[in-house]
Simulated assay, not measured.
Amino acid sequence: MEHDTTLARYDRQLRRDARPDGPGVRVEHTGPVVRQTGPAHAWNGVLWSGLDDLGPDEVDAVVAEQIRHYTGLGLTFEWKTYAHDAPADLPRRLRAAGFAPDGEETLMAAETARLDLDVVLPEGVELLPVTDEAGVRMVVEVHDRAFGGDSGHIGRQLLDRLAAAPDTVAAVVAVADGEPVSAARLDLLPGTDFAGLYGGGTVESWRGRGLYRALVAHRARIAAAHGHRYVHVDAAPTSRPILQRLGFTTLTTTTPYVYGQPV
């Protein structure tokens, strides 16, 4: 996989030419910014900002305009930054404007045709496709137990998409003895080369048994079947070594800056 070409394709298809990721949301191109706006349980934020040719005061004005837009709607939002974004001091300017950085993740991608997808599930575990409200409840349960906090917004997003655009999402739950122990989602983006891996949560008692790897392989097979050349993931430090062994390559790092609530 050619790094610069793949990253440029990612920026173009998933950021500059982004499409709404669910019903009830809209993607807007306003000046140098591409942003998504939707209901409170949706992902709201800035996907792309072409600020290369702007002076410092102009950059600050663009940032202030996004704050006015989202706070005027009563929404918390993210400015999703990448290490290669310009200007180089954008993170500092976002912090000065009141944004709080969330944890840095590594944007990784792999060609589906080159991935090692021959993964065996642990004994006694089966994978169930999520197609209805009962399945979504299991996804939320796994995420609550795996990550802590309330993952209800994830369930609402997933229900919306299963109802309105089921061909754009595939979710799966790993079940052992009737108990959901791991869950993950695949975003299928028609008209793009990419499918996105999200979630990948496993309850503590089942970690280290290969479930994360199995769910990555399962979703990559679905992505390939839908004609997507690449799968991509924002990887936490704990996931990065597993993904590297599967054949993923690092493209850059990404940090969301959150406005409107403590991180």
Rank of each mutant, 00 (worst) to 15 (best):
G152H: 11
P166F: 06
D160E: 13
G98A: 08
G74Y: 12
E78W: 02
I154C: 01
R161T: 14
H143C: 05
A113C: 07
A97W: 03
A164H: 15
D85R: 01
S151D: 10
D89H: 03
L159K: 04
W79C: 02
G103V: 13
V139D: 04
E104N: 05
E104S: 13
L121P: 11
R137M: 01
G124Q: 06
G124K: 09
R92K: 00
G74C: 08
F147A: 12
V119G: 08
P101A: 12
L121R: 11
W79S: 01
E104T: 15
H153I: 01
E104H: 07
D118Y: 03
Y70A: 06
T81D: 02
E126W: 05
T81R: 03
F147W: 15
I67M: 08
A164C: 07
L73Q: 15
E133F: 00
H84L: 02
R93N: 00
D102H: 10
G155H: 02
E141V: 00
R92F: 03
K80Y: 05
R93H: 00
R95L: 03
D89P: 07
T106C: 10
H69I: 09
L90D: 05
R156T: 14
R114G: 06
T76C: 11
E141K: 02
L121C: 14
L127V: 10
Q66W: 04
D132T: 03
F147C: 07
A109K: 02
E141M: 00
L90C: 07
S151K: 10
F147S: 09
A146L: 11
R156E: 15
L94A: 09
A165K: 05
R93P: 04
E126L: 12
P122T: 10
D118Q: 14
A134C: 00
H84M: 01
A164W: 03
D85S: 07
R92H: 07
G74H: 08
L117F: 00
V140E: 07
G72Q: 11
L128A: 08
T112C: 15
I154Y: 11
G148P: 13
V136D: 08
E123Y: 07
T131S: 13
P91E: 05
A113E: 15
H69C: 08
Q66M: 14
H143N: 11
A163C: 02
G155D: 10
L115Q: 04
I154M: 10
M138S: 14
V119F: 09
L75K: 06
H153G: 00
I67G: 03
M108C: 08
E78D: 14
L115G: 06
D118W: 04
L115H: 04
V142I: 08
E65F: 01
T81P: 00
Q157M: 15
H69T: 14
K80F: 03
Y82H: 14
A164M: 04
I154N: 04
G149K: 14
E123W: 02
G155W: 05
D102S: 13
Q157Y: 07
L158C: 09
Y82D: 10
L73C: 08
Y70R: 03
D102E: 14
G152I: 02
A146R: 12
Q66K: 05
G135R: 05
E123F: 12
V140D: 08
D118C: 00
M138W: 07
T71G: 00
D132G: 09
R156G: 00
E65A: 15
G103S: 12
W79D: 04
G98F: 06
A109S: 15
L107F: 11
E65M: 10
P91W: 01
L128T: 13
E65L: 11
S151L: 04
